[in-house]
Design a binder for these strands. Structure first.
Length: 304
DNA sequence: TATTTAACCTGGACGC
DNA sequence: TGCGTCCAGGTTAAAT
């Protein structure tokens, strides 16, 4: 599933292929893929045609392409400060393909370019992802940085040089809820999904059901270090691919799945102590952990 | 206000 | 072979 390492891999690929190119055609084949663009598919297409892609940015699992207008002579194109925002959801792919390449089964949006080169395709089997046009707004924590309005509520990710470790620790240690739930809250820390939450907790020897309020500052610091390590390792491996649902912009799989210690390893021996990894239901999804290395918290005493 | 739950969605795997 | 059920999980609105 696309989490920070997978999205960063896609961002780097798009940066290479798309920067400086001008959009010449837009085909929206599935309206659900643009459902968050409230003005509708036709408005999105009209605004994108003629726009020049300046860069490819990312925060957490969100990608966006800042756009520049073609100039006053053309009625088409985006407003000043607009950008194309993309979220891959669970199964979204952004592929850079030759225009004559066969159409993918779940191809929803395709962008052609004025230079006649490779086109950009948004493919999404489970349709949780999508694209929209949005305005850039000043980031809440640094005035010289802009993010799309849709992304403004998302916290920085742990690989962001401006991530505030102290603020994260304070906010996490105020939480009277499960640690794993907190790690999945993109408003607290972005980029972490089910896979890297489980892996980070395994590395930190922490059970996902520990309450945030029970953690000492040193434990949070240790956890944050492990989160950064696992994310960086996964970025270096090109992300995690369990099936064909996650690939980079060239359609190639990542290989971090070979390095996973807990996620997807239910029944296999823990690489650290040999105890079989256990899988349990948690938050309408699954959690994998070592019942020996990651001791569950003691049940809280009930108030009379 | 803080926290938790459910719905959205598709296709592969599995059991009968 | 066909049908029904379960599972995967990021985001967010609604409920508690």
């Amino acid at each position: 599933m696309p989490e920070l390492p997978e999205v960063e891999t896609v961002r780097a690929g798009l940066q290479r292929w798309l920067s400086g190119r001008t959009i010449a055609s837009v085909e929206i084949r599935h309206a659900r893929a643009v459902r968050r663009h409230l003005a509708g598919p036709q408005d999105l297409a009209a605004r994108l045609i003629g726009a020049r892609i300046e860069a490819v940015s990312r925060r957490g699992k969100y990608l966006w392409l800042p756009l520049s207008s073609p100039g006053p002579a053309s009625p088409a194109g985006p407003d000043r400060g607009e950008c194309l925002v993309a979220h891959l959801g669970m199964s979204g792919q952004l592929l850079v393909q030759p225009a004559d390449a066969p159409q993918e089964r779940h191809l929803h949006v395709r962008l052609g370019f004025a230079d006649g080169g490779r086109e950009l395709r948004f493919i999404d089997q489970r349709t949780f992802g999508g694209v929209l046009l949005d305005h850039l707004v000043p980031a809440s924590d640094r005035s010289d940085e802009s993010v799309p309005g849709q992304v403004a509520h998302i916290a920085r990710d742990p690989l962001d040089p401006y991530f505030d470790d102290v603020l994260f620790s304070v906010r996490l240690r105020r939480r009277d809820s499960a640690l794993k739930r907190a790690l999945l809250d993109q408003g607290l820390v972005s980029g972490i999904g089910n896979i890297y939450a489980d892996e980070s907790l395994w590395r930190a020897r922490l059970h996902g059901e520990r309450r945030g309020v029970t953690l000492r500052p040193t434990a949070v610091r240790d956890l944050l270090g492990h989160i950064r390590d696992v994310l960086a390792d996964a970025v270096a491996a090109g992300g995690t691919s369990f099936d064909a649902l996650y690939v980079n912009v060239n359609g190639q799989s990542g290989y971090f799945d070979r390095s996973l210690s807990a996620y997807g390893r239910a029944g296999e021996p823990c690489p650290r102590c040999g105890t079989p990894i256990r899988r349990v239901a948690f938050m309408n999804r699954s959690s994998s952990f070592c019942p020996c290395c990651q001791r569950p918290p003691r049940p809280r005493a009930r108030k009379e």
